[in-house]
Design a protein around this nucleic acid. Structure first.
Lengths: 237, 237
DNA sequence: CGCTTTAAGGTCAACTAGACCATAACTATC
DNA sequence: GATAGTTATGGTCTAGTTGACCTTAAAGCG
């Protein structure tokens, strides 16, 4: 894409892509899916999965398609939400590329097999990534930061935390989601009170799950409520 | 922009535009700036102001430029925030157009003179617009709905409400902002307590302003705090 | 059995929000 | 000039929520 193209048609056109910030919880840590780039620019560097949007699909459809093509993850079970558009002129050395970033959340997913496109796909702990500036290609570090702040805030006033859990889960599992995303420990007792009193957040199944150690925990499944009110604020302490 | 163009270059390109949802308060009502379209498609219909993004500017810069070109409003004093990207294939009959919507908030602005582009620009009360489906061109009704929900939520946990007010204002003025955006009355006494106890939301100037009727009100200016914690929730009542 | 571990439930004080009341300070009007 | 109307400002009271912390329950393990 060079300037001659634009002049030839008399209209300024842009390449539009989608980039995916796919979060899940693995071993009590928030991780994000990265791919190792197999082509210039930034060959060999890590990047968020993504690709071009086709003209006959919606932005969200493009996100789900790229999710499948690059990581072989079936996105129908994932929570997908638009994060925003990133279009600074210098963000891609090849020229003007506007990308629409999507946030995808899901339960502990099968190890990415590296779909058709990307050579390698792998889960990277988010906490460690933030301490490595320059590790990610393009402006993906910025997108990742925005995504982290978005999900941290979203946990406060919605029930999306359950999408990180399997179909049935314990309240400790759910608490682990909050602790991994917010990066701090929560009081188990107060957490239980907040969640169980919030109507429609979780529903008891009546079953129990034996633990490796300690008293067995009751199992729950996600409820029908989408919003959490009053919100569950991550306080300063 | 037709299919021949795309085939000729072998890459799927899109037209990228910015659209602006400019909110302000006029006569105790939340109003949005609309322009009457002077060209096809949707000629004569109302639409959000907006236009093409140039390849050498950021998306936010493009938003400020269009703001100036279409409405002659100086955007440097306005709060500008990205709302999201809208890119459904059928949203523009001319072909694939991806638009990045921006939310702009400001104090009661000079009557729009209809800048260089649009024939007519005018303030439309948002409440009335929501009851008129099909009044707006493209998918602008959807964008407007999203913008309204965004600003309603933003008032809950930030101090942006002050950008709707002039440099100095009374607490009644500020309460009027919340009432206009949320569409419901607030208790003056409880509102005062909430705002004045929140550190950095407003700062007293020591001055007073005589009212048309009733006791004079103390004047304030905006404080330095950006976030409001704990948030000011719009409750069900 | 006694110890450890996690789950689950309760208590208590501090804080917050909503409803409501009272007073202050001004204007308009009789 | 007294009085009513109107808005600003401040206070009270109660219900609900939260954070800190304690107690008991139910499992495994030596």
């Amino acid at each position: 894409m060079d300037d001659r193209l634009e002049r030839s048609v008399g209209v300024e056109l842009s390449l539009v892509t989608v980039d995916l910030v796919i979060f899940t919880i693995r071993e009590d840590a928030l991780v994000v899916l990265l791919v190792e780039r197999g082509a210039e620019p930034y060959m060999g560097r890590s990047a968020l999965p993504g690709g071009r949007v086709r003209t006959n699909e919606t932005l969200a459809e493009g996100a789900r398609r790229e999710l499948w093509e690059e990581t072989a993850i079936d996105g129908t079970r994932l929570h997908l939400e638009q994060l925003g558009a990133y279009g600074d002129p210098g963000r891609d050395p090849r020229g003007r590329v506007v990308t629409i970033a999507y946030l995808a959340l899901g339960p502990d997913l099968p190890a990415p097999v590296g779909g058709t496109d990307a050579a390698h796909a792998y889960w990277a702990p988010v906490a460690a990534l933030l301490g490595e500036p320059g590790k990610l290609a393009f402006d993906h570090a910025r997108i990742l930061e925005d995504a982290l702040e978005r999900i941290r805030g979203t946990l406060e006033d919605t029930t999306v935390a359950t999408v990180f859990c399997p179909d049935v889960f314990t309240l400790s599992d759910l608490r682990g989601v909050y602790e991994a995303v917010w990066g701090r420990a929560l009081d188990p007792s107060n957490f239980r009170r907040k969640i169980t009193k919030a109507e429609g957040f979780v529903e008891p199944t009546g079953e129990q799950r034996p633990q490796a150690t300690g008293r067995p925990a009751a199992l729950y499944r996600k409820g029908s409520a989408k919003r959490l009110s009053p919100p569950f604020l991550r306080s300063a302490s």
